[in-house]
C-alpha cells in the first residue's frame, strides 16, 4: 500500500476520532446535573443574569442547533468565547500551547536520550550492578507520581541547594524569544536567553520526563534482551560484525520498532503529566489553563483545550504510524 493511501485512510479515521472527541466534549456539560448554563455560572447568580447569559451563549436554542453551530465553527477555529476574558477560546488555548510543547518536547528528548542507552546497557550487562541499578530506577520511576517528584526536586535542588529557581518562569523566557534573538543575530541575547530557559525548564522537564525515561528504559531493556537472543544476532556475530554494530544497528533497530507504537499510545499520559507538572511549577502552559478554567467554570476554554489535545494526539499517532511503516519493512508490504 502506498504511503499516500495509508495517510489518507489514517486521516479519515483520525477525523472520525476527532468528531467523536468533539461530540463527547460537547455532551459533557449536558451530563452535569441542572441546566447546562449552571456549569458556566457561579451558583449564586440571579435568574435574570442566568437567562441573559444563556441567551448570549445560544443556550436557549435547540440542542441540535447548538451542536451544529459548534461543529461548523470548528474548522475555522471558532470554539466559542472564553467566559472569563471574553476573548476567543481557541486563542487562549493556542497562546499557552508553546510553553506546554516546550516542556513536553524537552521531557521527551531527555527521556529518549537517557533511556535508550540505559536500556541497552542494562540489557548487555545483564545481572551486573548497572542492570540492577537501571531496573530499580525504572521500577521506581514508573511508580512515582510526578507531582510529588516535582515537589521533591524543588525541595532538594531549589530550596536546599539553590541550583534552580522555585519561582515561576517570568514572561519573555522561551524558545520563541531565543529564536527571535537568533533571527535578529543577537547572539549574546540568545545565549543568555538559552541559559535562562534551561534554568527554568530543567526541573519541570525532569519531573515530566522521569516516568517516560523509566518506561522507555524498561521497554528497551526487555526488547534488547529478546532481540539479543535472536538467531540473527548470533549470525551477525558469526560473520564478524563488531559488537557495536550488532547491538546498535541490528538489535536496537528491531527493539525500537515496537517501542515507537507504545510511545504513540503514551502521548495521552504525556499530556496528562504535563498538566500536573505545570501545576507544580506554575508553568504558564495549557495544563495551568485547563485547571484554572475548570475552577473558573470557563467551559468553552476547557472544551477547546480538550479538542486541541485530541487533535494533537490523533495527528501525532498518524505520524507515529507512518514512521513505523517507514522503518518496518514488513508492514510496508501488505
Amino acid at each position: 500500500m502506498s504511503l499516500a493511501r495509508f495517510l489518507l485512510r489514517r486521516s479519515l479515521q483520525g477525523i472520525f476520532v476527532i468528531w467523536g472527541v468533539v461530540t463527547v466534549v460537547f455532551g459533557l456539560r449536558f451530563i452535569a446535573p441542572g441546566a447546562p448554563e449552571n456549569v458556566l455560572l457561579p451558583p449564586d447568580v440571579s435568574e435574570a443574569t442566568r437567562q441573559q447569559v444563556a441567551a448570549e451563549l445560544g443556550l436557549d436554542q435547540p440542542l441540535y442547533l447548538q451542536y451544529f453551530d459548534y461543529i461548523v465553527g470548528l474548522p475555522v477555529g471558532d470554539m466559542g468565547t472564553s467566559l472569563v476574558t471574553r476573548t476567543p477560546a481557541s486563542g487562549r488555548v493556542l497562546s499557552t500551547l508553546p510553553a506546554t510543547l516546550e516542556l513536553a518536547i524537552a521531557a521527551t528528548v531527555v527521556a529518549i536520550v537517557i533511556a535508550i542507552p540505559l536500556g541497552v546497557i542494562s540489557a548487555t550487562r545483564r545481572h551486573k550492578p548497572a542492570d540492577y541499578g537501571a531496573t530499580l530506577f525504572s521500577l521506581v520511576g514508573i511508580s512515582t507520581p510526578n507531582f510529588w517528584l516535582g515537589i521533591m526536586l524543588v525541595i532538594i535542588f531549589s530550596v536546599q541547594i539553590g541550583w534552580f529557581p522555585s519561582s515561576r518562569r517570568p514572561v519573555g523566557i522561551g524558545i520563541d524569544a531565543i529564536l527571535a534573538d537568533l533571527v535578529a543575530l543577537q547572539l549574546e541575547a540568545a545565549a543568555s536567553g538559552l541559559r535562562d530557559w534551561l534554568y527554568y525548564i530543567t526541573l519541570p522537564a525532569i519531573t515530566l520526563g522521569t516516568y517516560f525515561t523509566a518506561l522507555i528504559t524498561r521497554l528497551t531493556r526487555n526488547g534488547m534482551l529478546e532481540e539479543l537472543g535472536e538467531e540473527y544476532v548470533r549470525a551477525a556475530r558469526a560473520k564478524g560484525l563488531p559488537e557495536t554494530l550488532v547491538r546498535y544497528k541490528h538489535a536496537l533497530r528491531n527493539t525500537l520498532i515496537p517501542i515507537i507504537t507504545v510511545l504513540g499510545l503514551q502521548l495521552g499520559t504525556l499530556i496528562g503529566g504535563a498538566v500536573i507538572t505545570e501545576r507544580v511549577f506554575r508553568w504558564p502552559g495549557l495544563g495551568t489553563l485547563i485547571i484554572n478554567s475548570i475552577q473558573a467554570r470557563d467551559w468553552p476554554v476547557v472544551q477547546a483545550s480538550i479538542i486541541i489535545i485530541g487533535v494533537g494526539f490523533v495527528v501525532l499517532n498518524i505520524l507515529v504510524d507512518a514512521l513505523y511503516t517507514y522503518i518496518n519493512p514488513q508492514v510496508g508490504e501488505n
Binding site: E230, E231, Y232, R234, A235, A236, A238, K239, G240, K249, H250, R253, N254, I257, I327, N328, P329, Q330
Partner: peptide, 16 residues
C-alpha cells in the same frame, strides 16, 4: 571462521 545456521528465516535481520 564463519558459520551458517539451521533456520534461514530467523538468521537474517528482518528489518534490513
Amino acid at each position: 571462521f564463519s558459520m551458517i545456521f539451521q533456520d534461514p528465516m530467523s538468521s537474517l535481520n528482518p528489518s534490513l
